[in-house]
C-alpha cells in the first residue's frame, strides 16, 4: 500500500513536484538576480553585442563562465582561450553529473540531456536534497525540472533587463541579494554534517577553498571539492577498520 499512497499523493504528482522544485529554488533566484543584471549591463562595455549576451544566457547558461568570458573578450582573447577557460571553470559540474546519475539513470536520454543542460550549482544544491529524501515519489525528476526552469527563466529575464537598461541598478545591487545563495547552501549543508567523515569533508573543503581562492579558473574550488571528498573517504575507511577490529 505505501507505493500506491505515494503515487496518489498530490505532492508527489508531476505538477506537485515541478512547483515544489521551483519554490525551493526561489531564494537562489533572488540571489542570481543581481548577477544576471550585471552580466547584461557589462556585455556592451566588454565588446559583446546585445544579441550575443542574450544568446549566451540562453544557450550557455553558466554564470561564472559567462562573466569570465566577458573579461576575456574585453581583453581581446581569442576563441580557443575562451572555450578552454569555460571548460576548466565548469569542470565541477562533472562532479554534479556523477553525483546525480544514480537518480536519473532510468530516465530517457532526452530527459537526461535536458536536465544536464540546466545543471547549475543552485539547482544541484536543492535537487540533491530532494533526490536524497526518503519518500518514494516516482516524479522527483519533475522537481529537478521545476528548479531548472525557474533558474533558467530567471537568469534570462535578468539578462534581458540588464541589456535593455544598459546600466546598473545601484538600488538592486545594494540590497545584497547575493547573500541568499550563501544562506541556502549553509541551510543545506549543516544538516548533512551528521558524522565525523562528513564534518571532515566540510572542514578540508573549506580549508582548501580558502587557501586556493586566488587560483585562476575556479581551480581552487575544484581542488577543494576533491580534497573534501578524499578526507571524508579517509575517515570513513578508518571508522570501518575500527569497527572490524
Amino acid at each position: 500500500m505505501p507505493e500506491l499512497a505515494t503515487s496518489l499523493d498530490p505532492r508527489y504528482s508531476r505538477t506537485g513536484e515541478f512547483w515544489r522544485g521551483a519554490l525551493d529554488t526561489l531564494p537562489m533566484m533572488l540571489g542570481a538576480a543581481p548577477f544576471g543584471l550585471i552580466f547584461g549591463t557589462l556585455a556592451a562595455p566588454s565588446g559583446l553585442s546585445s544579441g550575443g549576451a542574450l544568446a549566451m544566457s540562453l544557450v550557455v547558461f553558466a554564470g561564472s563562465s559567462q562573466f569570465i568570458a566577458l573579461s576575456l573578450l574585453a581583453g581581446q582573447a581569442g576563441l580557443v582561450v575562451i572555450v578552454l577557460t569555460t571548460f576548466v571553470v565548469n569542470l565541477r559540474h562533472a562532479l554534479y553529473s556523477a553525483s546525480l546519475l544514480p537518480f536519473v539513470a532510468e530516465l530517457s536520454q532526452g530527459w537526461r540531456a535536458l536536465l544536464a543542460f540546466w545543471l547549475t550549482d543552485e539547482t544541484y544544491a536543492v535537487v540533491q536534497l530532494r533526490y536524497g529524501a526518503d519518500d518514494a515519489s516516482p516524479n522527483k525528476h519533475w522537481f529537478q525540472l521545476g528548479s531548472s526552469v525557474a533558474m533558467y527563466t530567471n537568469w534570462f529575464a535578468w539578462t534581458v533587463v540588464g541589456v535593455v537598461l544598459g546600466r546598473s541598478m545601484p538600488q538592486l545591487q545594494r540590497l545584497g541579494l547575493e547573500f541568499a545563495m550563501a544562506a541556502t547552501f549553509t541551510g543545506i549543508v549543516v544538516p548533512l554534517l551528521r558524522n565525523r567523515p562528513m564534518v571532515a569533508a566540510a572542514l578540508v573543503a573549506a580549508g582548501v577553498a580558502l587557501l586556493g581562492r586566488d587560483l585562476p579558473y575556479k581551480l581552487g574550488l575544484m581542488l577543494a571539492a576533491l580534497a573534501g571528498v578524499a578526507a571524508g573517504m579517509a575517515l570513513e575507511a578508518r571508522a570501518d577498520q575500527k569497527e572490524a577490529r
Binding site: 562532479l95 544541484y124 566540510a202 577553498a209 573517504m233
Partner: peptide, 13 residues
C-alpha cells in the same frame, strides 16, 4: 561527500 564538499567550498570563502 560531493554535496557537502562542493557547497562548503563555495560558501566559506
Amino acid at each position: 561527500y560531493v554535496p557537502v564538499a562542493v557547497l562548503t567550498a563555495i560558501v566559506v570563502p
